[in-house]
Design a binder for these strands. Structure first.
Lengths: 339, 339
DNA sequence: TAAGCGTTCTAAATCGTTTAACCTTTCGAT
DNA sequence: ATCGAAAGGTTAAACGATTTAGAACGCTTA
């Protein structure tokens, strides 16, 4: 009992295959009568419509959009920021009858999907840098988010400005300051950056955040040596714990710690509170992102709020529109109680 | 500048298309020499391998697996249980070079993907019940998780037994008991179930949990009227809040409240604590799932721990193996401090 | 010498559509 | 009476591969 094909149906109904195809795809190519007649006959005999696999080949369009996440899905799916982003993307895709294929940014190559997907949304710099090149060399549309790809439209907030502003709000002249950063250098575990070469410095948003911090520090007359900058390989609690301990146990302890994500900042806050450090009396902390948890702590986190859902929605809309213009989204500085 | 096709390559190298195809797909069909020779020539001229869209049509295989989530992705991606499940699935798929397509369980139908995906993993009963029927009528492999589909392999824990055990641990003779349930009846918002007809009673795991609770209640000599059973349409905090308020404000207040998920139980705990109710002195609470947050509260939650990652991994393995045998996973009763 | 056999490669059918190009018929306008 | 355009179809060539059946070749064996 094989599945019905368009050809079978055409034979049964005594019309050409083109007519059946048109009935499903191009209503203007045949009379309304004929069309409903055909559609009903199809329902009758159990033909649910053209085979999608064949459509993909023939049309060169699959309605599948690949969401390339920075890292392995293992990790990315759990991160609340990535998570809400996915939510936003999926909502818009859904509305447009598109499908969502999750793709890991540490994959070997995109050759196994590039032939059939309709486009890529690239969230964060892929861990495997070669993917960026591949993405840029192929001809399907690409929208980047939280990182940049030469010539492709990007969705971003102004990370440099936001970082500058939150840092400015936290810093006082004469402070000792430390930075807990993210993906600044290539390293498998948490460590200070010292003189390691910076990673991807032009396209990465965390380098923009670093730029913003540095501008604020300079303006306030504060020097930060690279051994006061920590680097986390991923935005996850386990990496943050180690950095938090190290920075809090160093002496003299900093007066301000600028964190490049709320996940990091929250872990640091937790750690500081258990050590009995008074926040913000003895230590000020800033985060980044504005995840829900950051608003629920006592004292609640000073951070930069950006809407991940919106980012996701805009990214998907941009991809589907075929437009090629980048977009800068708004953000909000939330002063909170930690500075 | 069109993309190279296998035919172009064959012409250029002066061999047949079959040989090129074999070089990529069936090494045993040609000599090793010829093969490496061809592969290198391909690399040289920039042919990266057979077009995937064409392969999908011809082979009837795409390496894409659809993960059908119970609800809209919007919500499912955020739920920590679903989340870690996805993680497990993606890990195994990745290892096997398969791709993950996220599919919403409240979609109209699966006809738009069934032609090209290799199989389905179905996580929880799809909100649109018609999907279950469609999934079962088509011929691609299906693995179900946390619900059952006649004749298809399922991955589950013994929900009835686990619920019985956690309830048994919480209940004392003479207790007044309430239940905060999930998807027991068809209702768009939180409400008591009264005499509403049960939904999907045979295939749903929450009904198994209800069975377990009821057995424990009966054994302990406790009666529970249906107006002491709340139903939440989805496992989300916002629905739980309302149920929590209602049940805590009812008088006389129950001595024990059995919750069908940790999300619900945590919201209830939060609510009870703000009302100044002593846990477990004045009120005992049980959860279900064993999410991380449930271990971090004071007092920490009595619950049934199951590994969602493992569930995901097993589901994916089962699907890929083509095996047809269901599987019962282990769980653990964690007594915690709330009973 | 002819048959047998393993190896390597080729030709052609197939997968299930879409769509540009073409063919009739009808009908009002010239 | 003739033309042109519109309406409503049909034909057949793609789309880019996979795969079966069999041809050609070189070699052994009876």
């Amino acid at each position: 009992m094989k599945k019905l094909t368009l050809k079978d149906v055409a034979k049964q109904l005594g019309v050409s295959t083109a007519t059946i195809s048109n009935a499903f795809n191009r209503p203007d190519q045949l009379s309304a009568n004929k069309r409903t007649e055909i559609l009903e006959a199809c329902k009758e005999i159990g033909y649910t419509g053209p085979n999608r696999a064949a459509q993909i080949l023939r049309k060169g369009q699959s309605n599948i959009v690949a969401l390339v996440l920075a890292d392995s899905l293992d990790y990315m799916v759990t991160d609340p920021v990535a998570n809400t982003f996915i939510q936003g993307v999926s909502r818009v895709l859904r509305e447009n009858q598109k499908h969502l294929l999750l793709y890991a940014g540490d994959s070997d190559s995109i050759t196994d999907v590039v032939d059939f997907v309709d486009g890529f949304i690239c969230y964060g710099a892929p861990r495997n840098g070669a993917l960026s090149t591949q993405l840029n060399q192929q001809s399907k549309p690409v929208v980047t988010v939280d990182f940049n790809l030469e010539g492709r439209p990007a969705i971003n907030i102004d990370n440099e400005k936001a970082s500058y502003e939150i840092a400015k709000a936290a810093l006082r002249p004469g402070d000792r300051a430390a930075i807990l950063g993210l993906r600044l250098i290539d390293s498998p575990s948490t460590c200070r950056i010292y003189d390691s070469p910076l990673l991807d410095a032009e396209s990465s948003i965390t380098h923009r955040r670093l730029d913003g911090y540095c501008r604020a520090l300079k303006e306030t007359g504060i020097e930060v040596a690279t051994d006061w900058i920590w680097n986390l390989p991923e935005n996850a609690g386990m990496y943050a714990v180690q950095a938090a301990r190290e920075v809090l146990q160093s002496s003299p302890r900093p007066d301000v710690i600028l964190c490049m994500s709320d996940i990091i900042a929250l872990e640091l806050l937790q750690c500081a509170l258990t050590m009995g450090i008074d926040i913000p009396g003895e230590l000020r902390i800033t985060g980044f992102d504005g995840i829900e948890e950051a608003a629920r702590t006592r004292p609640y986190m000073a951070t930069v709020c950006q809407s991940s859902v919106e980012k996701g929605m805009e990214a998907a809309k941009l991809l589907l529109s075929g437009d090629n213009t980048s977009m800068s989204l708004p953000y909000e500085i939330k002063v909170g109680e930690t500075i």
